[in-house]
Design a protein around this nucleic acid. Structure first.
Length: 502
DNA sequence: GCTCCAATAT
DNA sequence: AATATTGGAG
């Protein structure tokens, strides 16, 4: 048993140095080889540098959440490294999220040395996992020959390697979000026109990834791009919502680094939220709302898991049991789709951010305005909508507004390569506007369709205020903000540095 | 013999 | 639907 132990290499990841030290001590006493990491990024680097020698990962649930649960899937699927998650009870949603990904071993915090007297469970788990891993790769051909019929054996022989071993049939490669994002990043670096499988493979630098894998994926990607190019967007905000391929998913990377408008992009992932409330994935701060479909000078928000059609999207979530509605407070509506600016505050005398609500036909139903503390909505003309129920439920939709400098004056709904959001092109500002113009924007950022909607009662004097809003808790805010670099492996950061985006 | 890519197979 | 494999062209 002991000799087996010393063959197991463990990576321990926790942001709590005390636990880190505790685990390292225990593991080393048990003759594990231990590597430790205090944060997510360091864990990624370690794993990347020595992934072939890591047999087990013990990781804090919160950090796992920071890396993203794709990471769990990634190392379980691709590397087949078992994960043992140490957790605190206060993140129940994270636990269930993690359990969705795959079989996982949990240890509850706080734990002490005595809890590790029962460590043999983990031992068994790790050793068993390693054994399975090896067995899945190598199957004794002798055993096979006993059971196989001669006919089948002939076919199997192609796989036969040296030393009487036979390599088990390769499992289907899975393009996780993470890998796809690396793929996109590689293409970004090379340039789409010059991107060929070999080069992409080289830049992605992912173990076990083959050129054929990349070629196949590239083919699919090109087909996708062709479809997008041919697609008519005249329908406005339409079906393209359904296709996720080019999107940044889970915020790990971006198809086009230019999309990052600001030096610091804040990234929120719904991994931190109840899965009922999957939400906005990107926002920035200081100016605007993050990622634009182009270099337009206005704001844009990205949402995901957003269904624009029949199902309305409830864009709110929670952290544990705490309402989490201050960053992604944008969209929440029960009966029809609604999009509101997020992370905005304003000089209400000159700039009024707007929220708009649209129906299933992409028509604007209502437009709301905000000031520093409140949200209210304003009816737009009845020829757009004859609604006798035309006020936003401001408390629901914009509780916990986040107040930051906000310079945009105008909003329109844009549909760009990355989704939809608020774009420039309108000529509305508090007190002075008479029209609200929505701008539909193509992938190049060019407005291809404008629609004007008359407004009234945009004057601040006419505003009705809601009392439900509260300001954002700064600490919570900080907890939810991560520099993008935290999500990237070392090479990716170099790549982004070269492009000058970090 | 290798790469790319479109077509085809699984 | 997603990924793997094939076969022609360069």
């Amino acid at each position: 048993m002991d000799c087996e132990r010393s063959n197991i290499n463990v990576l321990v990841v926790d942001h709590d140095k005390w636990y880190l030290a505790l685990l390292a001590n225990i593991l080393m006493a048990w003759q594990y080889k231990v590597q430790t990491a205090e944060d997510a990024h360091q864990a990624l680097v370690i794993l990347r540098d020595s992934q072939s020698t890591i047999d087990v990962i013990i990781i804090d649930l919160y950090i796992l959440g920071m890396i993203g649960f794709d990471f769990q899937k990634f190392i379980q699927d691709q590397f087949q490294i078992p994960i043992i998650i140490i957790f605190e009870d206060k993140w129940p949603s994270l636990i269930s999220k993690s359990l969705e990904i795959g079989p996982t071993h949990f240890i509850s915090k706080p734990f002490g040395a005595e809890d590790f007297k029962d460590f043999k469970d983990i031992w068994k788990y790790a050793i068993e996992a390693k054994r399975k891993k090896i067995e899945s790769l190598l199957v004794r051909s002798e055993e096979l020959q006993e059971t196989e019929h001669p006919k089948k054996k002939k076919k199997k022989k192609e796989y036969q390697g040296e030393g009487g071993f036979e390599v088990a049939k390769k499992s289907k490669f899975v393009w996780t979000t993470y890998l796809h994002n690396l793929f996109l990043l590689a293409i970004k670096q090379i340039g789409l026109d010059k991107a060929v499988p070999k080069k992409i493979l080289e830049i992605m630098n992912v173990p076990n990834l083959t050129r054929a894998n990349v070629a196949s994926h590239l083919q699919k990607y090109r087909i996708f791009l062709r479809n997008v190019a041919e697609e008519r967007i005249v329908e406005g905000v339409s079906q393209r919502n359904n296709t996720e391929f080019p999107y940044v998913k889970n915020g790990l990377a971006f198809q086009d680094c230019d999309q990052v408008r600001l030096g610091k992009s804040r990234l929120e992932t719904s991994d931190f939220m109840d899965n009922n409330g999957a939400s906005t994935s990107f926002s920035s701060y200081d100016v605007g709302q993050g990622l634009m479909a182009s270099s337009f000078s206005s704001s844009s928000l990205l949402t995901r898991d957003f269904e624009f059609g029949e199902t309305s999207y409830q864009n709110y979530g929670s952290i544990g049991n705490d309402p989490f509605n201050h960053i992604n407070h944008g969209v929440k509506n029960w009966s029809s789709s609604s999009i509101l600016p997020q992370n905005v505050s304003c000089d209400t005398r000159n700039n009024n951010p707007f929220g708009i609500q649209i129906n299933n036909e992409s028509e604007i139903v209502r437009i709301g305005t905000m000031n520093n503390e409140r949200f209210n909505s304003v009816d737009i003309s009845d020829d757009i909508v004859n609604s006798n129920n035309s006020w936003f439920n401001a408390g629901d939709q914009n509780a916990n507004m986040n107040f930051r400098p906000f310079v945009n004056e105008n909003f329109g709904l844009v549909r760009g390569e990355f989704g939809f959001g608020f774009g420039s092109g309108s000529d509305v500002r508090g007190g002075s506007g008479s029209k609200f113009q929505t701008s539909l924007v193509n992938n190049e950022g060019n407005v291809f369709e404008n629609r004007d909607f008359p407004l009234h009662k945009l004057d601040g004097n006419d505003m009705e205020f809601d009392n439900g809003a509260t300001s954002m808790n700064e600490i919570e805010s900080n907890q939810m903000e991560f520099n993008i670099s935290n999500y990237l492996m070392a090479d990716d950061m170099n790549l982004l540095n070269e492009v000058g985006k970090l």
